[in-house]
């Protein structure tokens, strides 16, 4: 579904990602771990095609199509969706309208919003004055409306209260398992690339593969639960060693 080859990315003239390679198979979920500032959000933004992120080397393939230089909206049309960590405020544009256009008029925003207890937010300007957890839920509603094939979720559980996390987790689960996408596998074909620090979201979704990003470089790859256990017990210092082991 998604294949990243030797990707080097600059932000504001500074190299943030260095020779990153990873892949997400159709119908599978990959998890991205890594310390603050290691480049996780940068990677998702680059896959989405946002302007500040300059690919200086490497390739991004989506369903075998090279999308490295494709405009953002065309990537979205191909089925890439991003829940961003820090989305901008859209003053004067309300949540109702953006949900409506994200789904090309196909979903009923009221109905969708009720799933995440967000009915009262539909008339509010997108992200303006939203709390941390509200931003996550609003992003998820927009993604649900958009119904992509690849869900890129940047810390979906972060800032979400214990009661809402159940709703968010269930919704993420349902979104990823429902519907059909072009893919090689027989199953749904929906895929996800998920960033998490706590791993809480892994209670709701089945993750097949984990990567650790350190300092702009992938240093480990393995079973996400085991990686998380290692990070919990030994911290991220291990990822440097992990890299050494892999290289030897």
């Amino acid at each position: 579904m998604l294949e990243i080859k030797d990707l080097t990315v600059e932000v504001g003239g500074r190299k943030v990602l260095n020779n990153v390679s990873l892949s997400v198979l159709p119908g599978s979920t990959s998890v991205l771990f890594g310390p603050n500032g290691s480049g996780k959000s940068t990677l998702l933004s680059t896959i989405m095609g946002l302007g500040n992120y300059k690919v200086v080397k490497g390739q991004i393939l989506f369903n075998d199509v090279d999308i490295t230089n494709m405009p953002i909206n065309e990537r979205a049309r191909l089925g890439i969706g991003l829940m961003s960590q820090r989305p901008p405020n859209l003053s004067g544009v309300n949540l109702y309208d953006i949900i409506k256009v994200s789904s090309h008029g196909k979903v009923d925003p009221e109905k969708l919003a009720s799933k995440l207890n967000m009915e009262n937010f539909l008339s509010r300007d997108v992200n303006v004055g939203f709390s941390g957890g509200e931003i996550k839920r609003s992003e998820l509603l927009q993604l649900a409306a958009q119904d992509p094939c690849l869900f890129m979720l940047d810390e979906p559980e972060s800032g979400v209260d214990l009661e809402s996390i159940e709703r968010v987790g269930t919704m993420v689960h349902d979104l990823i398992s429902g519907g059909k996408c072009a893919g090689k596998r027989e199953e749904s074909g929906k895929s996800a690339l998920v960033i998490t620090h706590t791993g809480q979201i892994l209670d709701y979704i089945e993750a097949d593969r984990g990567y650790v990003l350190c300092n702009g470089t992938i240093t480990c790859m393995g079973n996400p639960r085991e990686l998380l256990k290692d990070i919990r017990t030994k911290g991220y210092e291990e990822c440097i060693k992990c890299r050494l082991i892999e290289m030897n």
Partner: peptide
């Protein structure tokens, strides 16, 4: 960043700018 945010939901650049201007 606002234009790109709306584009990432599948709208063209023109549509995104139109939506922001209307909101403005």
């Amino acid at each position: 960043d606002q234009v790109e945010y709306i584009m990432s939901r599948g709208l063209t650049e023109d549509e995104a700018v139109g939506m922001i201007v209307r909101g403005f």
